[in-house]
């Protein structure tokens, strides 16, 4: 494919990023690009800092005291870690899906419309259209189209996770951040979500944390391996899994440690 030849542009650039939980260094001088309209996987053993890195992108760490960033994450050549950044605007352009489904205690419809209402979209027809579009994108529409008024907490685990995805998609973010979003799900739900993530890259950029290497190999274009807060290697997924440059990467992807 011709378009793959020239490397795609970067939507985010992580530059020398370090992160502290209080005094604990959890990310140590990480540098990597996030390519537009591509899927980037973050892999590595448990506790290596994948979630910590992901939560820097939408400044989730700001919710808790004593957390500290050093370095920068550039977006349109602005450092989004700066103090005066509009965090609410930032968070609505970088959507996040968590490990466990997080349905709000309200109807399916209101769940999806939640982010839209935050953006002051009140027109009922617009809301209906956007809710349907998001549910279709998340491959959930057929299952819930007759249950829009039911409480979302009554859906199955896999449906709840796709609901969480749809809710995030509804606000049309530029980047979607997934944190091991299939680790609590059965294989069929996992398959559905993997498929929809791959479809999504037409429209947006995806960063996905996963502890499952096969998943990273299946879905992502780029892969970053982390270890104890450091980036070990970042490359095209093919290279990471077949021609790793780093000895540690080779051992990790062949399952010899981790």
């Amino acid at each position: 494919m011709a378009e793959q030849k020239s490397p795609p542009e970067d939507i985010l650039n992580v530059n020398n990023l370090s992160f502290y939980y209080g005094k604990n260094l959890a990310l140590n001088q990480v540098t990597l690009p996030i390519r537009k309209n591509r899927i980037t996987s973050l892999i590595g053993p448990s506790g290596c800092g994948k979630t910590t890195l992901l939560r820097c992108f939408n400044r989730m760490h700001d919710l808790y005291p004593n957390n500290r960033y050093e370095g920068e994450i550039l977006m349109n050549s602005h450092n989004i870690l700066e103090k005066n950044v509009d965090i609410i605007a930032l968070r609505s352009s970088l959507g996040m899906v968590f490990q466990k489904p997080t349905p709000f205690p309200m109807s399916v419809f209101d769940n999806i419309a939640y982010g839209l209402k935050l953006k002051n979209i009140r027109n009922q027809n617009t809301l209906k259209e956007k809710v349907e579009k998001a549910l279709r994108q998340a491959a959930l529409w057929d299952e819930v189209k007759d249950r829009l008024k039911e409480n979302a907490t009554g859906l199955s685990g896999g449906q709840q996770q796709r609901l969480s995805i749809a809710r995030t998609l509804a606000v049309e973010p530029m980047v979607m951040l997934f944190d091991e979003c299939t680790s609590a799900l059965d294989p069929i739900s996992t398959q559905k979500i993997e498929d929809l993530i791959v479809d999504l890259k037409e429209e947006m950029t995806i960063v996905a944390v996963t502890h499952n290497m096969q998943q990273a190999a299946r879905i992502s274009d780029y892969t970053a391996l982390m270890y104890i807060g450091k980036l070990v290697e970042y490359d095209e997924t093919d290279n990471i899994f077949t021609r790793p440059k780093n000895k540690m990467t080779e051992e990790y992807v062949s399952g010899r440690f981790g």
Partner: peptide, 23 residues
């Protein structure tokens, strides 16, 4: 996680409290 999910959608703190936590 429920609070964080609301924050991640761009909700302000009072919005999170009223529409998610209180609920």
């Amino acid at each position: 996680a429920l609070r964080e999910a609301a924050f991640a959608l761009g909700a302000s703190y009072h919005k999170v409290i009223v529409s998610v936590v209180w609920r």
